[in-house]
Amino acid sequence: HDVTIHAGDKTIHVHGASEEFLRIIEQAKRDGIHEEELLRLIEELVK
Rank of each mutant, 00 (worst) to 15 (best):
L22Y: 04
E19T: 03
A7T: 13
H13N: 11
E43F: 04
V46Y: 05
E26G: 06
I12D: 03
H15P: 07
R30D: 06
I5V: 09
E37Q: 09
E26R: 07
E26K: 05
I42F: 15
R40M: 11
I5E: 04
L41K: 04
G16D: 11
H15G: 04
G16P: 03
L41F: 09
I5Q: 04
G32N: 11
D9Q: 10
E35G: 15
H13S: 10
H15W: 00
A28S: 09
I42R: 00
E37K: 05
I25H: 00
T11Q: 10
E44I: 12
R23H: 13
V46P: 02
L22W: 08
V3N: 06
D2E: 10
G32R: 05
D31L: 10
V14P: 02
H13G: 03
H34T: 14
K47G: 11
I5R: 02
E35F: 15
R40T: 11
L38T: 01
L22E: 11
G32Y: 05
R23A: 15
A7C: 08
E19W: 01
I12G: 02
H1S: 13
S18F: 05
S18Y: 07
E37V: 09
F21V: 11
V3Y: 03
I42L: 12
D2T: 15
L39G: 06
Q27T: 11
K29R: 14
D9H: 09
A28C: 07
H15A: 10
I42A: 05
V3I: 15
L38D: 00
R30S: 14
H13T: 13
D2V: 15
H1W: 08
V14L: 12
E43Y: 04
D31P: 02
D9G: 15
E35R: 08
R40V: 10
R23C: 06
E44D: 14
V3E: 04
V3A: 07
V3K: 07
E19R: 01
H6W: 00
E44P: 02
T4G: 03
F21P: 01
E43L: 14
I33R: 07
E26Y: 00
E43C: 09
L41T: 03
G32Q: 07
E19F: 02
E43A: 14
T11F: 03
I33K: 10
I12F: 04
H1I: 15
I24W: 08
K10N: 11
H15C: 08
L45S: 04
A17P: 08
T4V: 15
